[in-house]
Amino acid sequence: MKTIDLSHTIKDGMPVFPGTETPCIKDVFTHEVHGFWEHKLTLFSHVGTHIDAPAHMIKGAPTLDKMNTDRFIGPGICVDCTHRNQNAPVISIDDLLPYESEISEIDFVLLNTGWYKHWGRNEYFTNYPALSPNAARWLMEFDLKGVGVDVISIDSAESSGYEVHTILLEHGTIIIENLTDLHLLPSDGFIFSCLPLKFDEADGSPVRAIAID
């Protein structure tokens, strides 16, 4: 069995959504003083590679801790959107249609824009490729567990609201953001896993997202 890590490393000073504090990771206990090593982690629930729960945008919707674990694992495909760039950043239905038959048989759609290559630079936060509302509605015609992207948000940076978030989350479809290395995924599909931390009222959670080939 081969696994492919699709997650960014959580660390001090890492890129975060504008307005969010960066994680703070401190040594509290050390081998030299205490005989063991332990860190204190202070971080927001949507830091790094993470899941958005329906409750993130929809009041009264399920939180991650209330969802069955099978919601976070299943067959997936990767849609090549690398032709989308700063000059044509909208991911449309036309980009998804060639994958229609595969989408009808899987649980997760991951959109490979190649934008993760800008991780750690200012370009990561602006004019990135993003799913159009119409394309999001088209995806909701399928029985998907989740949609994943390798950008900071599934909504465009120029969006005045969270329309794509709302379209997906109203259907109970989880959103996985800040994925990385999607170019490593096999073209014929894989098993995708994005198990979240189980904390009370989890509106979102960092995940160790992986693909199993």
Rank of each mutant, 00 (worst) to 15 (best):
S156R: 03
T126K: 07
F17V: 06
T180E: 07
H183A: 15
S132V: 04
A135C: 07
G13R: 00
A202E: 05
D203Q: 13
T69F: 07
L6T: 02
C78Y: 01
N122I: 08
S156Q: 04
M14C: 11
I191H: 02
D150T: 04
P133Q: 11
D12P: 03
L97P: 03
I51D: 08
V28L: 07
F192I: 00
D94T: 07
D27C: 06
P15E: 10
L97D: 10
D80E: 13
K40L: 14
I93L: 08
E201S: 14
T173M: 08
E141D: 15
G19K: 01
P18S: 10
K66S: 15
I103Y: 02
A61W: 00
D155N: 13
D150L: 10
E123P: 01
D203N: 13
V151W: 06
G35I: 04
L179N: 08
A157N: 06
G19N: 02
I103K: 01
A61Y: 00
P129A: 15
M57L: 12
R137F: 06
K26V: 14
V149L: 08
E102T: 00
S205G: 14
T20K: 04
D95Q: 10
K2H: 09
H83Q: 07
I91R: 06
D70H: 05
D213V: 02
Y116N: 11
V109M: 12
V16H: 09
E105L: 08
M140W: 03
L131W: 04
I176Q: 09
L144Q: 00
F192A: 03
M57Q: 10
N85G: 14
K59P: 03
E21D: 12
G74Y: 01
H50E: 11
I191Q: 01
S101H: 14
T113H: 10
D95T: 09
P54A: 15
I152L: 14
V47G: 06
I212F: 03
V16S: 15
D181N: 13
S193A: 15
G48I: 03
G120Q: 06
A61L: 01
P129C: 14
E158N: 09
L96P: 00
T180K: 08
I154S: 08
K145L: 02
T49N: 10
C24F: 09
S92A: 14
L97C: 10
I174H: 05
I25V: 12
K26L: 15
N178H: 10
D5Q: 07
V28P: 00
L43R: 05
W37L: 13
G19V: 00
I152N: 06
L6G: 14
D12T: 13
I106M: 01
F29G: 06
G76F: 00
W138K: 05
P75G: 09
K59Q: 07
G48W: 04
E163H: 07
I167F: 02
G172R: 01
H165C: 14
A130C: 08
R137T: 09
L110W: 02
P89V: 11
E21Q: 07
G161I: 01
V90S: 13
G204E: 06
N178E: 15
D95F: 12
R208D: 12
V47S: 13
H56F: 12
C81K: 04
K66V: 13
T42M: 09
T166S: 10
G172C: 09
D203A: 15
E21G: 11
E38V: 11
I176Y: 03
L182I: 03
A157W: 07
T69R: 08
T42D: 12
S205M: 05
H83K: 03
F29D: 11
H50P: 01
F192S: 00
D52I: 04
N87A: 13
